[in-house]
């Protein structure tokens, strides 16, 4: 087809209009499922890190957001009739080997770590990515311990946390994220645990 200014502008206009309408429609269709997939991820992680037992509230509805060092940390409290049974904290660090990553750290009422889930990361597959494996050394070091009673650094630096072999940077960042999660709960309760 011969090109003239009129038909060029017209064709581009029509093509852009048609395609953006089509994309917009698909967006409307997928908007719901995308939001659902995201919230499923959060609730899935919550159920994995919160202590077992009855929880009477909806942690996602009672969440509070705290900003530490310019990063948002989300605290999801889990309550039952006796008061606080635990906290799940969505925490992140920028110190990872390939930039930032996000953890969900679960504490019980005594601030002992119940479980930790990796929500999002870009660490090297086969090395740093091991922090997401079940029962990896980092997770085992934290499980059942209150971070306040631990020396929060890797064993090489005299701390209490075993680092993943050949992934010290990832391990240090992991510790940083857990510490941040702990600090967030403390600052939320201003020192003591809230037991209303």
């Amino acid at each position: 087809m011969k090109s003239s200014l009129k038909n060029m502008v017209l064709t581009l206009l029509i093509i852009t209009l048609v395609s953006s309408t089509a994309v917009g429609l698909v967006y409307l269709i997928t908007e719901g499922p995308i939001a659902e997939a995201k919230s499923n991820k959060t609730t899935g992680a919550l159920s994995k890190v919160l202590p077992a037992g009855e929880i009477t509230n909806d942690p996602t509805a009672d969440k509070s957001v705290i900003t530490l060092d310019g990063m948002d940390i989300v605290v999801y409290p889990a309550l039952n009739d006796d008061g606080v049974v635990g906290y799940a904290v969505e925490s992140s660090t920028k110190m990872g080997f390939s930039g930032s990553f996000k953890l969900m750290v679960g504490f019980n009422g005594d601030m002992e770590v119940v479980n930790i889930e990796v929500l999002q990361h870009a660490e090297t597959p086969g090395l740093g990515s091991k922090m997401g494996d079940p029962n990896n050394v980092l997770l085992v070091s934290f499980k059942g311990n209150n971070p306040a009673n631990m020396k929060l650094s890797v064993t090489k630096d005299g701390g209490d946390v075993d680092a993943i072999t050949a992934s010290t940077i990832t391990s240090v960042a992991y510790i940083d994220a857990v510490k941040r999660a702990y600090d967030a709960v403390l600052s939320l309760n201003e020192g003591g645990l809230k037991n209303e």
Binding site: M1, K2, S3, S4, N7, M8, T11, L12, I15, T16, S19, S20, A22, V23, V26, Y27, T30, I34
Partner: peptide, 25 residues
């Protein structure tokens, strides 16, 4: 229906739209 001179830009818009659809899905 596409004038020769705007062939490539038109193709890119079409392709980008399909990519976005796949991305959203």
């Amino acid at each position: 229906f596409i004038p020769a001179k705007v062939r490539i830009p038109s193709f890119i818009v079409v392709i980008a739209s399909f990519v976005t659809v796949v991305q959203l899905c």
